[in-house]
């Protein structure tokens, strides 16, 4: 029987049997795992609070045949402001949902782990949720191998010089007018939107709160990412 001590963030949980919870947790050293927390729904459970969604927790795990069992949990960082505001809670829920969809079970992804943590911290500290979300979505794509090409044509590699081009999900980024096929869904993309995407893609967690982007640019990035993320997971999605 193997025991582990790891740091994790609970993405989601569901009821499991009588008073237990089945959790999806992203961890630093074990990657994304599913774990059962026995008795975690009961009022006197000592691990209940530490295993609340979006909490950063030290988790003591035991590996059984099919899944992990949470032996103990000790909360390290909570984001209390998320629990008093529907907009923030929805934003955190979207981060958790996207992370769950793009991060396969058992795989390590320390960069994405850190970015989930940064994003939750930024939401909790009151940074404009839509900026945090767009930044997270672009980072998520980058850290899972789907980083959109925004510096040159994804087909002919011609450098982008600030003209009106198109964004193609199948091509994985921007395409110049001469490479754009006649059929298919392509989003017209303007220089300020490409600039905004690049700024969001490269922003560090420290710089993100200072990033000034026009609301229309953020909205256009959302529309493009909504289609692009949906294209990658094979179903239409709706972003906040």
């Amino acid at each position: 029987m193997k025991f582990y001590l790891d740091e994790g963030i609970v993405l989601k949980g569901s009821d499991f049997g009588e008073g237990h919870r089945l959790l999806t947790i992203i961890t630093k050293e074990l990657g994304k795992i599913k774990a059962v927390a026995y008795g975690a729904k009961k009022v006197k459970s000592k691990k209940r609070g530490a295993l609340l969604e979006f909490s950063r927790t030290n988790i003591y795990l035991r590996q059984s045949n099919d899944y992990f069992i949470v032996e103990q949990a000790e909360g390290r960082e909570y984001f209390p402001n998320l629990y008093g505001n529907k907009e923030l809670l929805d934003a955190a829920g979207q981060i958790a949902w996207l992370t769950d969809r793009f991060w396969p079970l058992g795989q390590l992804n320390p960069k994405l782990y850190n970015w989930v943590l940064y994003s939750l911290r930024l939401l909790n500290s009151g940074v404009w949720p839509r900026i945090v979300l767009r930044n997270f979505e672009l980072k998520l794509l980058a850290f899972t191998g789907f980083r959109p090409i925004t510096t040159h044509c994804a087909v002919c590699r011609k450098p982008y010089r600030g003209e009106v081009w198109y964004f193609g999900a199948g091509e994985g980024g921007i395409v110049c007018p001469s490479c754009r096929p006649e059929e298919g869904i392509y989003f017209e993309i303007f220089p300020e939107v490409v600039k905004g995407m690049n700024a969001l893609l490269l922003a560090s967690p420290e710089k993100l709160p200072e990033l000034l982007l026009d609301e229309r640019v953020v909205d256009r990035v959302r529309t493009i990412l909504e289609y692009f993320l949906g294209y990658q997971i094979g179903e239409p999605i709706r972003l906040i």
Binding site: L52, Y78, Y83
Partner: peptide, 15 residues
């Protein structure tokens, strides 16, 4: 919860 220890409560609950 009634009958519990503050020592074992998590930060969110205490808050």
């Amino acid at each position: 919860p009634v009958g519990s220890d503050i020592e074992y409560a998590d930060e969110l609950t205490i808050r």
